[in-house]
């Protein structure tokens, strides 16, 4: 338990320092992008946020399967806290996207495939937590939530491919652009490097949030167990 605390503390200061460093780099050390101008800086928060959202829900997916397989409530707990963190990232993804859309596209929101499927992901996981709240039996809750978590995560590849499958206002992927089988991000290195750094720091930050939330959850379990013991 003590080593867990140390890791969390390390991740906390590491990610805060990393985020601050990236902030300085983004605002003081970068040239202005030539077609969008200053609002292009929103990219450095929007893109890492979507990578973190993807990862958070991938963890939900993996640990939901692990729970259904092994029936260990620890896996369900990890899926639950990751879904909570992912939901916050997803909300911020929608918000930063809307703010970025206004000066570049000329609108906060359009019902195109990319935006609608992302909103759908957010709504599915709102439902996920309503489902968890409505079931009082712990094992039943874990079972149902795992199934919904797995189904909900299937939306992620749809979101990712939406800009290729359908006509959207949202532009295709810059970072994961593939040309003739090779990865070739369409962004010059001086704008790409800080983006990659921000993504790395954001993943560290996600890990920090996940462990912090997991620890809270364990503390709560301890409390519930004690309460049950004292009432008997």
């Amino acid at each position: 338990m003590d080593s867990m605390k140390k890791i969390i503390l390390f991740l906390e200061w590491g990610s805060i320092a990393g985020l601050a460093g990236c902030g300085l780099w983004i605002f003081l050390g970068l040239p202005i992008e030539s077609s969008q101008g200053f609002p292009q800086k929103i990219m450095y928060i929007h893109v890492p946020t979507f990578v973190a959202t993807y990862l958070a829900f991938f963890v939900v997916f993996a640990f939901s399967i692990a729970y259904l397989w092994k029936r260990d409530l620890m896996y369900d707990q990890i899926a639950k806290v990751s879904a909570e963190v992912g939901l916050i990232f997803c909300a911020l993804l929608l918000i930063t996207g809307a703010i970025w859309g206004r000066p570049t596209w000329g609108t906060f929101w359009v019902w195109d495939a990319r935006l609608t499927t992302t909103l759908l992901l957010f709504l599915i996981f709102m439902g996920y937590f309503l489902l968890r709240m409505s079931v009082s039996d712990r094992d039943k809750e874990a079972r149902l939530a795992s199934v919904l978590g797995i189904i909900g995560c299937l939306d992620i590849p749809i979101i990712h491919k939406s800009v290729e499958w359908w006509r959207t206002l949202h532009q295709p992927s810059t970072l994961f652009k593939v040309e003739s089988g090779k990865a070739s991000p369409s962004i010059p290195p001086e704008l790409l490097n800080p983006l990659i750094a921000s993504i790395m720091v954001m993943l560290l930050f996600y890990l920090y949030l996940l462990l912090l939330r997991y620890q809270t959850e364990k503390r709560k379990d301890e409390l519930n167990q004690l309460l049950a013991e004292t009432q008997v």
Binding site: P31, I32, E33, S34, S35, Q36, Q40, M43, T104, W105, G106, T107, V110, L169, Q171, P172, S173, T174, K177, S186, I187, P188, E190, L191
Partner: peptide
């Protein structure tokens, strides 16, 4: 661009004009 509106004969009367920027970023 993406324009929203109605066709009026051969011309399109737009009520909304959205810019569809490309995925390419450049530095001057």
């Amino acid at each position: 661009v993406v324009v929203e509106g109605k066709m009026n004969g051969p011309r399109f009367e737009a009520s909304q004009l959205l810019v569809k920027h490309s995925e390419e970023y450049t530095v001057d």
